[in-house]
C-alpha cells in the first residue's frame, strides 16, 4: 500500500497549451481518488504520467516515499485498467491473468494460487478457458481487474473502466468496484468524465479543467461548496443556476429553487421573479425550465409535489440564503461574502 503524489507536474505536447499544467495533488494511502473533468481536461494524461506511460515535461511522481518519475511502468508496482480493458486477444482468460505473474517470474505454484484467488474474488471461475472475444463487456472488465489484482500492486489506476458498459450494468459495476476497492484497501486513482460515477464512488474528487485542478474535496464538498463556476456548472444534472446581479453571480441548485410562498419567513431567503416556460416530467421528479430576467434557470421538484403555479405566468420564487453561493462575475471564483 502506498500514497501517490504528483508535484508541480506538467505535460506539454508540441507547441499547444499544456495538457497538464502544474498539477500537485496527493492520493492518501488506501484512498479512492477520482479525477473528474470533461474530455480533454488532462485527466487521462495525468493518470498515464502516474503510471509511467507518458513522461512528464516537468515535475515529479512520488509513489510511497519513492520518486518514480524516471522509472518505467513495470518498476512502479502499479496496476492499470484501461477503458478498452486492453485484454490480450489471443490469450485465454487464465493466461491474461497469468501474464503479469509470468513477466515477474513468479513460481508456478504461487501463480496458480494467486490466479485462483483473483478469479474467485471476481467470479471468473467458469470462464478461465475462454478468449476475450467470447466474454461480455462486464466479464471483460472483471478479467481486466483480475489481471490488475494478481500482482498485488500498491496502486490501482483505472481509466474510465465502466464507460463501455450499458447503463444498467454500469450501476451494478459501480457498486461491485467500490466494494472491491474497500475490501482490498489499495490506493486507487480513478479517471472519469461521469459525475455520477465520481460522486458515487470517490472518497475524494479532484475536478480538472484545461489541465489544472479546480477543486479537490469530498463529493459533498464539491457539490455543496464549489470553488468556482466551472465546478458549480460541471457537477449536478441539471447544473447550478447562475444569475448575474451587479458584479456577482448568484448561484443556487435547482432543488433549492421553489415558490417564495413555500419559504418560511423565519428563515431568510433571496427572491427571484421566475417565468416558467416548460415542464419536463422525468418520473421521479419534474424539472421546470424558465427564466429569471434574461438568464435561463431550472427548478427541480419531486414528482409527488403539487405545484401551485402555471407555465407562462411569472411567479415569485426564492432560495434560502444558506443555500446561496456567490461567485465573482468576472473571474468565476467563489466569494464567501454575502452581497
Amino acid at each position: 500500500m502506498a500514497s501517490v503524489e504528483v508535484r508541480e507536474i506538467v505535460k506539454q505536447f508540441g507547441e499547444n497549451a499544456p495538457a497538464v499544467d502544474h498539477i500537485s495533488l496527493t492520493a492518501q494511502d488506501g484512498e479512492f481518488l477520482v479525477l473528474l473533468g470533461p474530455s480533454g481536461c488532462g485527466k487521462t494524461t495525468l493518470l498515464r504520467m502516474i503510471g509511467g506511460l507518458e513522461p512528464p515535461t516537468s515535475g515529479d511522481v512520488v509513489i510511497g516515499n519513492h520518486v518514480v518519475t524516471h522509472l518505467p511502468p513495470r518498476a512502479r508496482r502499479i496496476a492499470m485498467v484501461f477503458q478498452s480493458y486492453a485484454l490480450y486477444p489471443h490469450m485465454s482468460v487464465h493466461d491474461n491473468i497469468a501474464f503479469p505473474l509470468r513477466a515477474q517470474g513468479t513460481p508456478k505454484a504461487e501463480q496458480e494460487k494467486r490466479i485462483n484467488w483473483a478469479a474467485s474474488i471476481l467470479g471468473l471461475d467458469g470462464l478461465m478457458k475462454r478468449k476475450p472475444r467470447q466474454l461480455s463487456g462486464g466479464q471483460r472488465q472483471r478479467v481486466a481487474l483480475a489481471r490488475a489484482l494478481v500482482r498485488e500492486p500498491s496502486v490501482f489506476l483505472l481509466d474510465e473502466p465502466l464507460s463501455n458498459l450499458d447503463a444498467q450494468r454500469r450501476a451494478s459495476a459501480r457498486d461491485e468496484l467500490q466494494q472491491f476497492q474497500r475490501s482490498i484497501g489499495t490506493t486507487t486513482i480513478y479517471v472519469t468524465h461521469d459525475q455520477v460515477e465520481a460522486m458515487g464512488m470517490g472518497d475524494r474528487i479532484a475536478v480538472l479543467n484545461l489541465g489544472t485542478v479546480r477543486q479537490i474535496g469530498t463529493p459533498q464538498e464539491i457539490y455543496d461548496d464549489p470553488a468556482d463556476t466551472f465546478v458549480a456548472t460541471f457537477l449536478g444534472s441539471p447544473p447550478m443556476n447562475l444569475v448575474e446581479r451587479g458584479t456577482m453571480l448568484h448561484g443556487f441548485r435547482p432543488e433549492h429553487f421553489s415558490p417564495a410562498a413555500w419559504h418560511d419567513a423565519a428563515n431568510p431567503f433571496e427572491r427571484f421573479s421566475f417565468v416558467p416556460h416548460r415542464e419536463e416530467y422525468l418520473g421521479a421528479e419534474r424539472l421546470i425550465y424558465g427564466e429569471v430576467g434574461d438568464e435561463k434557470v431550472v427548478a427541480r421538484f419531486p414528482a409527488t409535489t403539487q405545484l401551485d403555479f402555471s407555465i407562462g405566468h411569472p411567479v415569485e420564487f426564492g432560495v434560502a440564503t444558506r443555500h446561496m453561493r456567490y461567485f465573482d462575475a468576472e473571474s468565476g471564483v467563489r466569494s464567501y461574502e454575502t452581497p
Binding site: 509511467g52 477503458q83 478498452s84 486492453a86 485484454l87 513477466a103
Partner: peptide, 26 residues
C-alpha cells in the same frame, strides 16, 4: 491497440517478452 501495448508495459513485460508473447502472436 496502444492500450494493449501499454497494458503489457504496466504488467511488467520486458521487450522480448512483449515481442514474443504479444506482438508476434497478434
Amino acid at each position: 491497440p496502444q492500450d494493449v501495448k501499454d497494458a503489457a508495459d504496466v504488467d511488467g513485460a520486458s521487450f522480448w517478452r512483449q515481442f514474443f508473447y504479444i506482438r508476434v502472436p497478434l
